[in-house]
Every structure is written in C-alpha cells, then in structure tokens.
Write a protein that binds this DNA or RNA. Structure first.
Lengths: 121, 121
DNA sequence: GTAAGCACTTACCTTTTGTTAACTACTAAC
DNA sequence: GTTAGTAGTTAACAAAAGGTAAGTGCTTAC
C-alpha cells in the first residue's frame, strides 16, 4: 500500500541530498557578484568597462576576479579581439543558460519580496 | 505592430529590474547558511542542537546569529516551551514556503552541476 | 602634449564571516 | 558528584570577501 504524500515534510535523506545540491550550487554561483554578472551578460555580450558600468557598486578588482572564476567554471567566455585597439568581450556560455530557472525564480521571489517590504513600510 | 521576441536578449531596463530583484533576494537569503537552515527546517520543526547536527560545519555562534536574522525576516518562528526542561523549537513559517521555487531550482541545478563535475572528473 | 578611454593589476585596508574554546545555567542519568 | 545533554553567549582570533586608490601600457581625440 502506497502512502499518499501531500504537503509532507521531506525525509532526512532527501534533506541531506538537498543540502548537498544547494551547497554545490552556492559554491560556484554564491557570493555578491556572480549572479549579477551572469544576469548582466544575459542582456548581451559586454566588455569589461561596460560590465562595470552596468553593475552598480562593483569594483574593477572584484569584476576581474569574478570574471576569472566564472570563466574557469564555464559560465563565461572571454574573447580578445587583437587590435589596435585591443577589445575584450565577455559572453555567456550555453552553460550559463542552464541557470535560467534559478534566475527566474530568484527574480520572481525578489520582486515579490520587494513589494511586500514596500507595503509593510 | 508588435515585435516578436523569441530567444531575445533582455532589454537594459529588464536587466536593471532583474539586478534589483536578485539583489533584494540575496540581501535576505544570501550567504553560506540561510538557505541551508531553511531547507533543514523544511524537513520539520527542529531544536537548536538538532539543527546544528543536521547542518554540516555550522558553529553554534553562526547558527544562533543566522536564526535571529531569519526570525527577524519572517522565515522562522522561535517557540519556547517552558519546562522543565525548557525546550526551544524552530519552525519554518508560511513565508519560507514562498521560497519553494527558488529552492527547487537550486536543488535541480546543483544536482545537475554535481553530476557534470563527476563525469568530467 | 594633455586628457580620456580601454582593460586591467597591485597594494593596502576594512568589513564580514567564521572558528575555537570557554562559560552560563539548568536537568537528568549514573 | 561527575558526566552528558539542553540552549545558547562571550571573547579572542583568523580567514575570506570586499572596497579604495593608484598605477600600467596602450590608443585615440583635442
């Protein structure tokens, strides 16, 4: 006989699995800047200074560091167009597209939360 | 005449809106521990030491601090059952349920990413 | 030739985050 | 009375993350 599971608490095993999965996710896309960079690139390939202007508050140092991380982890491709002038382009890879649902749900939730805070004053 | 938008890059306005929304979200649920605590509580009401045992690597100090934050932001309810012995329970609120899609997408993505890393060695 | 833009890097500093260990105060078991 | 468990707090410290400012070497515009 099957037990109907509706609105049921998750099992300890499932809990551990989720903790591991979310831990793995946060390891590569956690922190203040990584998702913001990926979002910004999702509006199109950008150059270093364009990114810095688009992302409020990020310093050149952080942007440089985070872009290296994102490149290593396969979210971003860096292309140097030998000049002169030398132009460096950053574009999102297809792997960064796999974050679509994560970004969409965070966007929705953040919008809802912002609205809730606004109402509450 | 309407422009068909399929697989189109997002507009600068939409990009800014998303950056704001995701920024608002990360402000309250960002960091190493908050989502892990919420996930753990989603498997049922827990006491302080139960939480600490369930979440690998968290110290009593961090757990205490993060629980206070989560309570202030309405994700967790703290209930003291006057004893003896005094028992303190932490339970997820209905507001933490609004994170369902965020947690689900992060869980899926993290699982996929973990599997990808495993295959690549 | 001076200023400004590009794409960063470097050094220094502050803030945040996190660790460790000790301690409080109470209860229950041995 | 000693040990262990409950639910934390506190102090001291270390590490990680992030910010600030200046500098590099190049090119183009005025």
């Amino acid at each position: 006989m099957e037990t109907e599971i509706l609105n049921e608490k998750i099992s300890p095993q499932e809990c551990t699995a989720r903790l591991n999965a979310v831990g793995d996710a946060l390891y590569v896309i956690g922190g203040k800047w990584k998702l913001r960079i990926i979002i910004t690139l999702s509006s199109g390939t950008k150059r270093f200074n364009e990114l810095q202007r688009a992302i409020d508050g990020i310093s050149a140092k952080m942007l440089s560091n985070e872009l290296k991380d994102l490149e290593i982890n396969g979210f971003v491709r860096r292309t140097v167009h030998e000049g002169p002038p030398v132009v460096v382009e950053y574009e999102p890879t297809s792997y960064s597209d796999t974050l679509h649902d994560v970004l969409e749900s965070l966007n929705k939730w953040g919008t809802m939360h912002r609205e809730k805070l606004r109402k509450e004053g």
